[in-house]
């Protein structure tokens, strides 16, 4: 089978999954990056979350249709990331990795969180840095709302908080983000 023929021979389900992944994969992966410490951890967490979803669908145990996949995946990504973080903490207590965080920061620079025009690269960097600086409880709501297209109710469900709390965190998060970006905006470095 040639490489050119391959796309036309996809089964309807595979073609549909590919289209779904093209649309939603980057959003879910961004959330996974927000919830984990490294690019690789984010990949592991997203992959495991999808495996869990697939297992449930294949077993006929998944309740709800396609609309229910997103809440399930966001919740699962978050839980898996928490589990991974606990394991990492235990491991760190056993081992002495002084320079690990520095190495991680250097590696993560090769995996930007956002696409941007070349002229906006500095803005993108500032935004990514500001988001990483925010407390996770704020940044996760912002990421789910803006780039995940989730409602406050859905965010609340995934993070196990009320929609009012989600809305409050979103507001505080936006304010904090504005403050983080304020100096750059004053310098004229940012276009937002």
């Amino acid at each position: 089978m040639s490489a050119i023929e391959a796309p036309t021979q996809l089964s309807p389900a595979t073609a549909a999954w590919r289209a779904w992944l093209d649309e939603h994969g980057p959003k879910l992966f961004l959330f996974a990056k927000n919830q984990t410490r490294t690019h690789e951890d984010a990949q592991d967490v997203l992959q495991d979350a999808i495996v869990k979803l697939v297992d449930k669908i294949r077993a006929g145990e998944f309740v709800g249709g396609q609309d229910a996949w997103h809440p399930y995946l966001y919740t699962t990504i978050r839980r898996l990331a928490i589990d991974l973080s606990r394991k990492d903490d235990r491991r760190k207590r056993r081992e002495d990795h002084v320079s690990e965080d520095v190495q991680i920061d250097q590696l993560e620079a090769f995996h930007p969180w956002f696409d941007s025009e070349e002229s906006d690269d500095e803005t993108r960097g500032q935004l990514e840095s500001a988001l990483k600086t925010l407390p996770e409880k704020f940044s996760s709501v912002i990421i789910m709302k803006i780039w995940g297209d989730r409602t406050f109710a859905e965010i609340g469900e995934a993070l196990e908080i009320s929609q009012n709390t989600a809305a409050s965190r979103y507001r505080y998060g936006l304010e904090a983000l504005k403050r983080e970006l304020a100096s750059a905006r004053k310098r004229g470095d940012l276009s937002i």
Binding site: D22, P112, D115, T123, R124, L127, I192
Partner: peptide, 12 residues
């Protein structure tokens, strides 16, 4: 502000 952030999208 939300709209201004939307112009950035996560990479494929």
């Amino acid at each position: 502000f939300e709209t201004s952030l939307c112009k950035f999208s996560p990479p494929k």
